Each structure stands twice: as structure tokens, then as C-alpha cells.
Amino acid sequence: DHDVVPEDKFQETLHLKEKEGCPQAFHALLSWLLTQDSTAILDFWRVLFKDYNLERYGRLQPILDSFPKDVDLSQPRKGRKPPAVPKALVPPPRLPTKRKASEEARAAAPAALTPRGTASPGSQLKAKPPKKPESSAEQQRLPLGNGIQTMSASVQRAVAMSSGDVPGARGAVEGILIQQVFESGGSKKCIQVGGEFYTPSKFEDSGSGKNKARSSSGPKPLVRAKGAQGAAPGGGEARLGQQGSVPAPLALPSDPQLHQKNEDECAVCRDGGELICCDGCPRAFHLACLSPPLREIPSGTWRCSSCLQATVQEVQPRAEEPRPQEPPVETPLPPGLRSAGEEVRGPPGEPLAGMDTTLVYKHLPAPPSAAPLPGLDSSALHPLLCVGPEGQQNLAPGARCGVCGDGTDVLRCTHCAAAFHWRCHFPAGTSRPGTGLRCRSCSGDVTPAPVEGVLAPSPARLAPGPAKDDTASHEPALHRDDLESLLSEHTFDGILQWAIQSMARPAAPFPS
């Protein structure tokens, strides 16, 4: 592969990997390779389809078979030569091979799209000592099968071997295949498990690692696999990028399955594409389908809103127990993405979901129960707010008499603000006073009005108090039968009158 990737590009890729991570280095090298001529790309395919690569990765054979028959990708048995050289000459001794072996032994695996480039050397060096003999053996194999790289107009793939297949390693990572398949204008990513390549439709969760975000852009890794992070704060999961590491605690105790298979379609829109997988259930989501939507993949363990709600429900009964003089119970939860139609709101002032922060849900004790107040519409209280300059209440639009249902020339009671006709409430011909108009209920007259088809109010509507207090003497005590009587009149003013009279009014101040 030294004929494909020059030394300066190799060093530039290593520097970019240390600065921005393996995914960015892979993407940059792939983009550079696509700008080369067809001879360089053909050399790339020839390096990929060597015999030892085909033996190690069985899924490469179907890719090789898909090439046109007129494309010669065979390799000479006596060494490598550029395709432009007409004579089959043995190339001179390859010093770059020693360079590659020494550099890969030092860096474990470079971040390139060629056999030198995919593992994360920093994480491997940190986690190597417990498994040094086995990992050293794996390093000797890295130059042979560490990076199976493929690129063409139909298929483009980048393979990364790992030393996680050490025997006896619980939940060992089998390997990473960062794979971009450009077929019919689409893009897919796969993962390699035990020599087999699994596409998103049959993606397997190998051991402790999972394909957290099938994305090839942005600074985030394709698999949430930063070796420096180790395990999740809650004892979460091992990262795919942690090559040759000792077994780590796999999943939280509440995880239903340690080796679950995540779905390959969004649980909201039932469509495929780039998904984020939940650590607590097999569901996966688009970032845009979450509520609120996320802009980037959160670091650490992530769970959907259903799993978060289940966790909150487990903690909430203990938080609601009476604990005198104790601060509110704080339950730190990872930043969760909410699927459509589901929402768990945190306290005000918290950062938005999706940031690399930890939301704190506070379970406050329930407030003391209070008697429910009568629910009145805002339009129902409008007549009470229509007060004239002299303190006389004006008529609201649409006000109707509670007896006849007519809204023409209605009066407004100064005591309960109900609309009424003087002739309907006082049919006996009582003279109307000039000021202080009161309806039949507030004036103490319980004589029913002779209106055909309208039920008369119940005599129990009024329960006047002592006459010594004029204001308190007109406080009506309405009961269920009074409400039914008012409802039978089918008037809004009657219902409003009952609601206003049912509310307690402050006692009249004593004259000074």
C-alpha cells in the first residue's frame, strides 16, 4: 500500500487522527484517494484483494465477484509491481515495509483507509498491559489484515481490525468495519463480527460495544468508541475503539438485554438511515425525530424517553415518601432524547437536551391539597369587569335574561352582576328603583315568574340570613337542586349567576 499512500500523506493522516480522531482521518484520506487517478484506485483494489485478505475476510469475495470481468485485479505471486511496468521484474528490497512494521508496532494501528489505518492507538496503548502477550500477537497480524480498504464507483468500504477477539475476553470487541457502500446513491455502514460483515439490516451488537450512531460526518466517531472515555459513568459499556482492553462492566443492572439487537429503522417514522440506538431497549431513532430533536450524538450512555420514564417511576415512589426537613431528592440522569409524543421536562434553567451534561430531575413533595375552585371561562368573567365610571356595571355583549332568554333592554344586578328583565323577575308590577337594581334572587323575592315553557326556580334557592346585616342577608345558599333548576333554563347567565354566588365573597367592612 506504500505505492498507493505516500509517506507524507501517511504522516498527515496520523497527525489528523491524533488531533480530530479516526473518523475524520478516514474521511480525509478517502476524499484524497478519490481525487487520484484511476491507476492509484486500481492499485488500491489490488492491494485489498490479496489472497491473505480474501482468506481472512470471507465477505470480500462477493465484492470481488461483483467487479466487471474485464477488470484485472489479480496479484502476481513473485511480488508487487506497478501496473504500468511491462516487465515482470522483482521490485527492489522494500524498506517501507520495515517502516510500516515499526510504526504500526509503535502506534498499534494508524488512522488511514489502508491496512495502516483504523484502530485507535492511544486507547490501545492505555489498555494494553493486562493483555500484552495476546495483543502483541495481534499486532503482528495487523499489517496483514488490519485495514481492508475498498473503493469503487459501486462499493466503497473501509475495514478496521481490532485485537478484541482475544480468547477469554468477556464481551470482547470482535472488530470495527467502517463501511461506506455507495449503492444507488445511498450510504450504509456496517460492522465486522468474527470475520463476517453485518449491514444495518442485520447488524449484531457484538459483546459490549454497539453501533451508536451510523454517521460518517462530524467530529463524533462512527461508533461511540473513545478509548479514553473507558466505561460509562454508571458502569455503562465498553467502547469499540478500545482495542485489546480488559473486560469492562457491560450494562447497567436495569438493562433488559446485554447482547440485544437494535432495530435498523426509526421507532417514530419507521424509516432507515442514520440512527441513534438506545442503551436500554432495542429501539433506534433519527436525531430529527426525537422531541426535542438533537443536533449531535450525546457522549456516554444514552437512553430513550421510555427508558428514562421507567427509571424515574422506579425512583419516584421512594422520593415521595414523607421525609421531614430533607432537601428534594435529586436523581442524576443521562441526557435523554425524547421520541415524538413523549416529553420529560427538567427543571427550568437546565441546558437543552443533547448537550454533554447531566440533567437533574428533582422530585419535590406534593403540595397540600386544596379545595378545587369553580372553573370559569374568561368570557364568563367579562360582565364582572365591565364597570362604568360611576361604579355601575355596563352590559356585556350577548347578555340575556335568565328567565325569558331575551337580551333586549336587559338590566344588570348590582349584587350578582346577572342580566335580567324587571318585568320577568317582578311581574307583579313592583316599581323599579332608580339605583341599586337587584334581581329577584338578590332582592329576596322568590315568586316564580309566569313564563310559559320555563321551569320556575326551586323555592330553596334563597336562604336569607339575619336582617340586621343587609349585605350578609342576601347571601344565597345554592344546592344541587338549585343548579339543576338553573340548568333547565338553558341560559348561560343562569349558570354564571350560580357560579358567582357559589364563590365566597369577603364580608362587608363594618362602618367606622
Rank of each mutant, 00 (worst) to 15 (best):
G241Y: 11
Q243R: 07
G244S: 04
G244N: 13
S245V: 11
S245P: 12
P249G: 10
L252K: 06
P253K: 04
P256G: 12
L258Y: 15
L258A: 05
H259P: 08
Q260P: 05
D264A: 09
D264F: 07
V268Q: 11
G272M: 06
G272L: 14
C278S: 10
R283K: 10
R283T: 11
F285V: 08
F285R: 15
F285T: 14
A288R: 08
A288H: 08
C289D: 15
C289L: 09
S291V: 10
S291Q: 04
P292Q: 09
R295Q: 06
R295P: 13
R303I: 06
C304V: 12
L308E: 09
A310S: 09
A310G: 09
Q313D: 15
Q316Y: 11
A319F: 14
E320M: 13
P322H: 11
E326M: 11
E326P: 09
E330C: 13
E330V: 12
T331W: 15
L333D: 08
P334S: 12
P335T: 10
S339N: 13
E342C: 05
G346L: 14
M355R: 10
T357W: 15
T358K: 05
V360A: 10
K362D: 03
P365A: 11
A366W: 13
P367W: 15
A370T: 12
L373V: 08
G375H: 14
S378L: 13
S379C: 10
L381H: 08
V387T: 05
L395K: 07
L395Q: 10
A396L: 11
C401P: 03
C401V: 03
G402R: 10
V403G: 09
C404N: 04
D406A: 11
L411G: 13
R412A: 05
T414L: 13
T414M: 15
T414E: 04
A417H: 14
F420W: 13
R423H: 13
R423L: 10
H425T: 12
P427N: 11
A428C: 08
G434D: 06
S441N: 03
T447L: 10
T447Y: 07
P448V: 14
P448R: 09
V451Y: 09
G453V: 15
V454G: 09
V454R: 07
A456S: 06
P459R: 07
R461Y: 08
A463N: 06
A463G: 10
K468D: 04
D469S: 07
D469T: 10
D470N: 08
A472M: 06
A472C: 05
S473G: 07
S485P: 04
S485L: 10
S488N: 09
H490K: 02
F492D: 02
D493W: 00
L496E: 00
Q501R: 02
S502H: 06
P506H: 04
A507C: 14
A508R: 02
P509H: 06
F510E: 05
P511C: 09
